[in-house]
């Protein structure tokens, strides 16, 4: 369990953390999600002790570590750009934490072998980091962090420097690894898809504050405010409300649309819109629309619905929101 209480951190006049409190349960994989400058990395580095707090406390497994240096916090840290020890082989990189603790060589070797097997780098023991691909380097960095049996594993945008394919592979892999190793893990990311994919809890940060904490489904379906809604998943703006594009139904007949809309409480109503573009996206079709008010939005409908509707660019169609689950009223002050 990691507990952060009333954490504040300023860089000059910029508040990186503005009274942040957060509980991270033991054994969970928590994602800190937010745009750049939201304070998510600062929060992670504060937990690691790489950044000192101006005020507030950090406890790890019940121990107050606020004034402890990173060396004594029992953490493993993984950096976006790997932070590999370039002059050491993969073996020596992974063994580093044990070597400096002067563990017996046999014990160190056994641990290193174990970890290299877990991260799938058994055959790369004698290579140097420069001879590895980005994904392999990051797996090496993970093994290195795990070698010291950390109480918490902290990952700062660990897949940010990798290309898209490797990134998705590696985050699946991280998820499986976490299910095996069960170490409390905190992951910083700005990629909502990544957070939804790997984390079992997500804390959304914005401007140095936590907007909402919860499991991915809650955050997606019941966002606390329009920032969370807009940051997790795509949104369309429909008559003063934010709606998920896949929660928009398009109908040719205005009367039917009105009748269906009446069944949805607090709906934004039926919006007449001109079809600007129909984009097939594999199993779904995105329809770019322009409302009478001039506002543009997109609806995501299934291929079958699209085939039935026979949409042509330039024609007028009637849009309505289905269900209320992911609808948030736009706060005029925070209008996106």
């Amino acid at each position: 369990m990691i507990t952060v209480t009333s954490a504040r951190k300023n860089y000059g006049s910029f508040a990186a953390l503005d009274d942040v409190s957060l509980d991270i349960p033991s054994g969970s994989l928590t994602a800190l999600l937010g745009p750049s400058g939201s304070g998510k990395s600062t929060l992670l580095r504060s937990i690691a002790g790489l950044e000192g707090l101006d005020s507030g406390t950090v406890t790890i497994q019940g121990r107050d570590v606020t004034n402890e240096p990173p060396q004594r916090r029992g953490i493993g840290f993984v950096f976006q750009h790997y932070a590999a020890f370039k002059h050491m082989t993969v073996r020596d990189n992974v063994a580093f934490g044990l070597t400096i603790r002067k563990r017996p060589k046999a014990e160190t070797d056994k641990k290193v072998d174990e970890l290299l097997e877990i991260v799938g780098l058994e055959g790369f023991r004698h290579r140097y980091p420069a001879q590895l691909s980005g994904g392999q380097r990051q797996r090496m960095a993970l093994a290195r962090a795990l070698a010291v049996d950390p109480q918490v594993l902290l990952l700062d945008e660990p897949f940010g420097a990798l290309d898209a394919k490797v990134r998705t592979d590696l985050r699946q892999w991280l998820r499986r690894l976490h299910d095996e190793v069960h170490v409390t893990t905190v992951l910083v990311t700005h990629d909502q898809e990544e957070a939804l994919d790997v984390a079992d809890r997500i804390a959304v940060l914005n401007k140095g504050q936590i907007e909402q904490v919860g499991d991915p489904v809650t955050l997606y379906e019941r966002p606390a405010n329009d920032f969370v809604m807009g940051f997790l998943g795509s949104v369309a703006r429909l008559g003063g409300q934010l709606v998920r594009p896949h929660d928009i139904a398009l109908e040719r007949d205005r009367t039917t649309a009105l009748a269906n809309d009446a069944k949805v409480p607090d709906s934004p109503g039926v919006i007449d819109a001109v079809v600007e573009r129909v984009v097939p996206l594999g199993f779904e079709v995105r329809v770019d629309l322009r409302a009478d008010s001039g506002e543009r939005f997109a609806a995501q409908i299934t291929r079958r619905d699209a085939a039935e509707l026979q949409l042509r660019e330039g024609e007028t169609i009637h849009a309505r929101a289905i269900g209320r689950s992911s609808v948030v009223d736009v706060d005029p002050a925070l209008a996106i």
Partner: peptide, 9 residues
């Protein structure tokens, strides 16, 4: 920082 997080003085 990585070395420090691994316990190196």
């Amino acid at each position: 920082e990585a070395a420090a997080s691994l316990g190196a003085s």
